[in-house]
Design a protein around this nucleic acid. Structure first.
Lengths: 209, 209
DNA sequence: ACGATAATTAGATAAGCATCAAATTAGAAG
DNA sequence: CTTCTAATTTGATGCTTATCTAATTATCGT
């Protein structure tokens, strides 16, 4: 008896998922139909005027929100409503303290920041100044700028010489003002430039000693 | 005293809007904060770590769903929660008959179909075979195909001669297989082609007499 | 009239997602 | 094993929207 039990994750996360699950007219209609009696996928598709893949998709969303149960019977799958869960969740929507404690949805496009070998304070700099992989603004404060420049420098392999165009191409993926970034990298001696030829390479040992 | 009253629109429409309004963690947090006491925009922005425009946007969404009230006091605007409306809507979520009766959200990108001077049956052909302005498939059934071809023919001004490229360009806005459409238009004598030079023009009087 | 402050609107960007057609899986029944 | 059928998965497309910055509106105090 593989019965559903509340997921391990905390309830607050679930609450947003619950409302997202109901924030679609097709899914609301499915809830309505399942509330009257269990249905299989084909019946629902028929009643809703949608294709089976679409209904399948909606049922998967509802299942993630623990709102429907699934019972297999031969090749057909019979879905039924978890009225108890529905009522529970609706009750939670009136717990204002809980709502106020909700955590902003972590932005998946910022997840890479967690993989950086940095202090939490430095990671905050990234979260503040980046939108996904793009730098929103170049920080004015030198300490914050340096956090980002050091990370940028690591995009250049040690011992490799880059043409100015290559350097620009790499920097452009982060911010349109690649010239400014390049200049700052050189000024802070994270990148070195050969006098005449326009070749750049990464300075491996930061000369802060 | 401009007090809120239930909108004129039917409740079903409102129900989906209600869940959409709550299907966002920022708005759920706003509900939580307003549930404890009224707040102005700046306070909310502060508490949520969002900019004021963003909070303003969320409050507008909540207002459309009749979930918050607004009171102006000097230049600041004080928002408060409509707990009664919140409770009412939550109760509706358990009325399965009502949910099942919900109408699929009318697709705004299909609204142009209503402006066509056609029978309702013909309009249904458009709704079935179009996604927005793009034809999903070319209908197999001749009667349905003709409905669409007649409409297509009207995109060509009477008395004007079009090069094949011009014809293709017009048809391509509707379906990638412009060649098929062009051939069908000619076969059904909605478009005529000059024998050698590749010039096309619209046949004004359909020769069905 | 003039800043200064609070809020909204406009515009841009990027993520999310509803939907469909086509391809795939999996059970049932010959 | 093969074939049929129910359902899911995959991949693509286009709409919606959350968020930001910049610009605008509105109200107060001087």
């Amino acid at each position: 008896m593989s019965e559903v039990t509340p997921p391990g994750s905390a309830m607050p996360v679930v609450l947003e998922g619950f409302f997202k699950a109901l924030a679609d007219s097709s899914r609301l209609r499915i809830i309505g139909l399942l509330g009257m009696r269990p249905h299989n996928v084909g019946e629902l598709a028929q009643a809703l005027g949608l294709t089976e893949p679409t209904v399948s998709h909606h049922l998967a969303r509802l299942r993630e929100a623990w709102l429907v149960n699934l019972r297999a019977e031969g090749t057909t799958r019979i879905y039924s409503l978890r009225v108890d869960m529905l009522e529970t969740m609706l009750r939670h929507a009136l717990d204002f303290e809980e709502l106020a404690r909700l955590t902003p949805t972590p932005r998946p496009d910022m997840a890479w920041v967690n993989d950086l070998a940095l202090s939490e304070a430095d990671r905050k700099v990234f979260r503040d100044y980046f939108n996904g992989r793009r730098l929103k603004h170049i920080p004015t404060k030198q300490s914050k700028l340096l956090v980002i420049l050091r990370w940028l420098a690591e995009k250049f392999a040690p011992g490799v010489q880059y043409t100015e165009q290559e350097v620009n191409a790499i920097l452009k993926t982060v911010h349109p003002d690649y010239a400014r970034l390049r200049r700052e990298l050189v000024d802070f001696r994270l990148l070195a430039r050969e006098g005449g030829g326009g070749l750049y390479w990464r300075v491996v040992e930061p000369p802060d000693a």
